[in-house]
Nucleic acid binder design. Structure first.
Lengths: 184, 184
DNA sequence: GTCTATAACCAGATAGAC
DNA sequence: GTCTATCTGGTTATAGAC
């Protein structure tokens, strides 16, 4: 059975990888943060390498995102749907932060993309198409609109969370404006 | 007067910082790429430190972005305006790539934000307001709409250029859909 | 499982000859 | 301005005692 130290190392690695970037974090830092003697190789009783702990951190975050995903229910109106998409992105913040920082060099990159797309800000074109056919919202290119909306939500999230957002428009106002674009 | 080696180092630094990240690039790599003997300290005849060359690279890119900025003319219709905004982002791709990778740790970060906002995908709320008042486009919250549009453009650019975009909707279709949202 | 100690390596940066 | 040579410090990873 795995010891508790392993979890403390994982927690420290996640926090520091996200905030400082993988390259800037030394194994020594993780040992210190996990209550081990810094500079001792005690880390290596739990992980084979720094790369190995990164893979474990990513795998755990993917698992968390997948678990969360099953508890998502479809929204009635556009505004609620977009708010939930933003919430989903925030829930996956650590994963997104690592993806932004490390790029495609991350381990398990394909599953990361998949879980972000599935459980994240996926705006369903078919859903839009149905609403258009029903006459609830104006007729436009459903795939194009779905992409534009999805990108707007992702862009807002990134600006707000990562790029020191000088946006000046708060979440609620943003979501309302976006829904008004699609709905009228 | 600066020698030509300095420029070769700057060019190499920009290319490698963008593609591999600052931390992954060794001074030795820059010397090799500039035609100097790798491992010799010849780099240090041109820059005081790695941090110093990063600052110089950033300053040069800011200058380029500012120079380009003065050649921007206002667009007549929404579709043209959004296409130009995407083009502006592509022109500033190296700066954006470094910002995405290195985050707020970049030197001259405030001027970077400013030049990105000024010359980039700035969607002017006042311009939207004027079109709404003139009855050219439907009445909505101008600031909210400007933010939603701007974030959509930025998000599309990031997805396309940096996150191995599995979007499936090309630029023209995206721009058209976005303009249709705002315009009708 | 954790420690002390250390090996092996690599990166940033400097000295001094040419 | 570039070279060879080197210093210094930090990082990954291992060995072996407890």
């Amino acid at each position: 059975m795995g010891s508790d130290t392993r979890t403390r190392i994982l927690d420290a690695a996640l926090a520091q990888f996200v905030s400082r970037g993988v390259d800037s974090v030394a194994v020594t830092d993780l040992e210190r943060a996990a209550g081990l003697s810094p500079g001792s190789g005690s880390f290596y009783r739990h992980f084979r390498s720094k790369r190995d702990v990164l893979a474990a951190v990513v795998a755990r975050e993917i698992g968390r995102a997948e678990a969360r995903r099953s508890s998502i229910e479809p929204a009635a109106d556009l505004k609620t749907e977009y708010t939930r998409a933003l919430d989903a992105l925030i829930a996956m913040r650590p994963l997104i932060a690592m993806l932004v920082r490390e790029g495609t060099a991350l381990p398990d990159i394909d599953r990361i993309y998949q879980v972000l797309a599935d459980g994240g800000a996926r705006i369903d074109a078919d859903d839009l198409r149905a609403r258009m056919t029903a006459g609830v919202i104006p007729q436009r290119d459903p795939d194009g609109v779905a992409t534009a909306v999805m990108m707007s939500i992702v862009g807002y999230h990134l600006a707000e969370q990562f790029f020191g957002n000088p946006v000046g428009v708060d979440r609620d106002r943003f979501v309302k404006a976006l829904a008004s674009l699609v709905g009228t």
